[in-house]
Design a protein around this nucleic acid. Structure first.
Lengths: 342, 342
DNA sequence: GTTAGCACTCGGTGTAAGAGAGTGCTAACA
DNA sequence: TGTTAGCACTCTCTTACACCGAGTGCTAAC
């Protein structure tokens, strides 16, 4: 059977209608809604075909039809009309670059959640390929050293290193200079073991302790660390009855609290996304178990130079894809503009 | 009417039973449960009295009784038998002091949530009265300066200050020395305006920019900042049917996500707590609207020297008070021991 | 190919009946 | 006077059943 133009139109009408109402949609509704001027009987025939082809399903015998995952997929791939959305508040909020990455990210998810009414998440930009701006070692205690590492985009990371012996001020100062002269401007993947051992040698005399410190710092720079993720609007899932039942809600909320799975999801979507950096997972396509009744839309964003992170929006399968994709696109653009000036 | 010994025993039995089952408890159950050897009819009479006195209520005419807020209150105040609880995992986890406060706090709430099966929260220890260990200014950009402030207990705070003119390295170094010599070892409330302006004077020549920087640092030290709060186990609320309905769950989860109200709650409980630092809010007693069907138990903890924070546990009103209070007590003790060594 | 008509299916709602748990009250008992 | 047995009563919860409405699939006519 072929999916001709008329069938497409009907499918689109079914989906649009279902997105709005959340109720199974029947032939009569379509007959009145569209400009096809067909009777409900004709629509019924066509819908039977669409069902046979797997684009729509009947929850039970005498109900209307709802889109299947395959139907949504077709819609997202070929029928969606992205609405370039004005993101309320977004502009004012982002006009001024936040000093701290953390604040910026928290704001983004919050605003996004308010705008879309879905649950949102964002992963901090990965520092891989991200340049080191500053390393600062300071003594906080007899044998504890604070290492502050600042990378491009003012991502600040603090590490406390415990050393066996004390280090005197002078050594520490030398170390600071040494590390900064050699490492600043480099990105994490440019800092390899060879370079580290060269540094250790150069540190010379106190090589033991110094080596220890350098190791820790190196680890601090390289470490993916536990991939920071910020979320917002988790309780929006209660807006959608199909997600709000106890079991599903609990699982979802747990996923959002644990954050680990979210990390993997965002991570994966980044490598998979198409050239626009936007990726849509519908129902079972989602790699995260607890989201099998949801759809997830992710967007990769880029701040300046190679600093990439991912934004994710989680909602019911009948989410407003047009709006969500449009909104994400807007944010991508705004972030890009904001940070390109560098 | 007087609350004699027998009535107390019956009340206690009612509460104990209700805590376990979550079902209204009837006279027959009590008659069999207790060692009072009274018939159900007698119990019925007593229960009618208890209801009249307001300690128990009947959800509807032909149901058993459940404790009222007043009943719980009496129970908590006079009948509870704290169980000194071994906190599973706690010991291993805390044996080694965490380098970073953040990690420690996250671990505590997580372990606590797993142990109690309730929702948990913790506020970071307030730096008020908490001594400054280190201030470190570093330049990250032409006109951006990173101020790292470390206080007792290794609470690290990063601030990025934007200055109008650049500062040369030498000035920055001087500033570092100046700030550290004068401020280290002081607590936030010892650092007042007079001291700041004295410092500014001393900074002399570059007074404008330097003043600006000092101001920012001072603000950084003093600022309550947005009171950091960590939570865990929010989805535990789904374990308790009386909290799991859509509306309540949504509200609760929202409260836990927003965190602001939690902050106020923890803050308040700190000042109110009795001498043991443990405070129980039952139902309507809670200052947070969304928790009016919950009970909240808070405990103030102290790390070393004046660094106080608060732990909170949120569950249904029929929470296992004995266990929760016992657990919190244990944690108080352990944290105290751990940090007293200083 | 399209449409009108019709029998059929099935979920949702409303009502009624019955079971079960628990109470309050009365009267008898120690 | 306090305690207990007995009983009628109340109220929730479950089950069964009927009914309504929405929607379908099919057939026959256009």
């Amino acid at each position: 059977m072929e999916l001709d133009e008329r069938k497409k139109k009907i499918l689109q009408a079914v989906i649009r209608n279902y997105l709005e109402t959340g109720e199974p949609v029947g032939s009569r509704t379509i007959s009145k809604y569209t400009d096809l001027n067909l009777s409900s009987a004709t629509i019924r025939n066509e819908m039977a075909d669409l069902e046979e082809m797997g684009y729509i399903v009947q929850p039970h015998t005498s109900a209307g039809r709802i889109p299947s995952d395959k139907g949504y997929r077709l819609y997202v791939d070929t029928m969606m009309e992205e609405k370039e959305r004005e993101v309320v508040e977004m502009k004012e909020m982002l006009v001024e670059r936040q000093d701290k990455m953390e604040t910026l990210l928290k704001q983004i998810v919050k605003v996004l959640a308010r705008n879309t009414q879905y649950a949102t998440m964002i992963s901090a930009p990965q520092s891989k390929g991200n340049k080191l701006k500053l390393i600062q070692l300071s003594r906080v205690d007899e044998n504890q050293i604070l290492a502050v590492i600042v990378t491009e985009g003012n991502v600040i990371r603090n590490n406390i290193l415990t050393v066996n012996e004390g280090l005197d001020d002078e050594t520490l100062l030398k170390l600071n200079i040494l590390l900064n002269t050699h490492l600043n401007g480099l990105s994490a993947d440019e800092i390899n073991l060879g370079m580290i051992s060269a540094l250790k040698q150069q540190a010379g005399i106190h090589s033991d302790i110094v080596g220890e410190v350098i190791d820790s710092v190196a680890k601090g720079i390289t470490a993916q660390e536990d991939l920071e993720i910020y979320t917002s609007g988790t309780n929006n899932i209660f807006r959608y009855p199909e997600l709000a039942d106890q079991h599903k809600a609990s699982e979802l909320i747990n996923t959002f609290e644990e954050k680990q799975l979210l990390g993997e999801l965002l991570q994966e979507s980044r490598s998979e996304g198409d050239n626009t950096g936007i990726q849509v997972y519908i129902g079972e396509e989602t790699p995260v178990q607890s989201m099998r009744d949801c759809s997830v839309v992710t967007a990769t964003y880029e701040l300046g130079d190679g600093m990439k992170g991912t934004i994710g929006i989680v909602g019911p399968k009948r989410m407003d894809y047009d709006k969500v994709v449009g909104t994400l696109r807007t944010i991508q653009t705004q972030l890009d503009e904001l940070y390109r000036k560098d």
